[in-house]
């Protein structure tokens, strides 16, 4: 191997790539357009389509993911802001065969109609239970206050939150 070979093969990039962890795996995203929302990188570049676009303004909660365990709106967080963070999406939480406790509770309560808001609801609930394992019904309503559902599954969703935490269901 000559000294010049690596140089030719690896022209120095204008901006360094953005490194982050997604669902426990190291991933690299192009920094070329680093102000693009994480939402688009997840869906279009990493093929993780569970996270949904709802409003692009952080008003509906449909795109909620976890960044270092905190619920964030992937439509507002830029790729640059996600650098170095550990991101969890709905796909990373569990699978149909081995669902996360929150997912299992949503399935048991059948807490979904069209399901477009479900991803954000589940992620927010997972974040809530990580910090507040035994939330009151008011805690659950407060945590989900930034999430909209148009089909009207709210009561089932609240039941699922309480079921997941082993608390009495409303």
């Amino acid at each position: 191997m000559t000294a010049t070979a690596p140089k030719q093969g690896k022209a120095p990039p204008k901006t360094p790539d953005i490194r982050l962890s997604v669902n426990g795996k190291p991933r690299t995203l192009s920094a070329a357009s680093s102000k693009r929302p994480l939402l688009h990188a997840l869906r279009d570049e990493l093929g993780l389509t569970a996270t949904k676009y709802g409003c692009g303004k952080g008003q509906c909660g449909a795109c909620t993911v976890l960044a270092d365990g905190q619920p964030v709106r992937a439509c507002l967080m830029t790729v640059a802001e996600a650098a170095g963070k550990s991101i969890t999406t709905l796909e990373g939480l569990g699978t149909p065969k081995a669902p996360h406790a929150v997912q299992a509770a949503f399935i048991a309560e059948q807490a979904s109609q069209c399901g477009y808001c479900t991803s954000g609801m589940v992620m927010e609930t997972a974040a809530l239970l990580a910090t507040t394992p035994e939330p009151s019904l008011e805690d659950a309503k407060q945590a989900l206050s930034g999430h909209l559902c148009r089909c009207g599954s709210h009561r089932r969703i609240l039941r699922a939150v309480m079921r997941a935490s082993g608390r009495p269901q409303p």
């Binding site: 389509t49 709905l90 949503f106 399901g115």
Partner: peptide, 18 residues
């Protein structure tokens, strides 16, 4: 139970958006 709920809740359901 509705057969599409597990896939919706685990992010495996393919919407037209996906």
């Amino acid at each position: 139970p509705r057969p599409d709920v597990p896939a919706k809740v685990t992010g495996r359901h393919v919407y037209v958006h996906d």
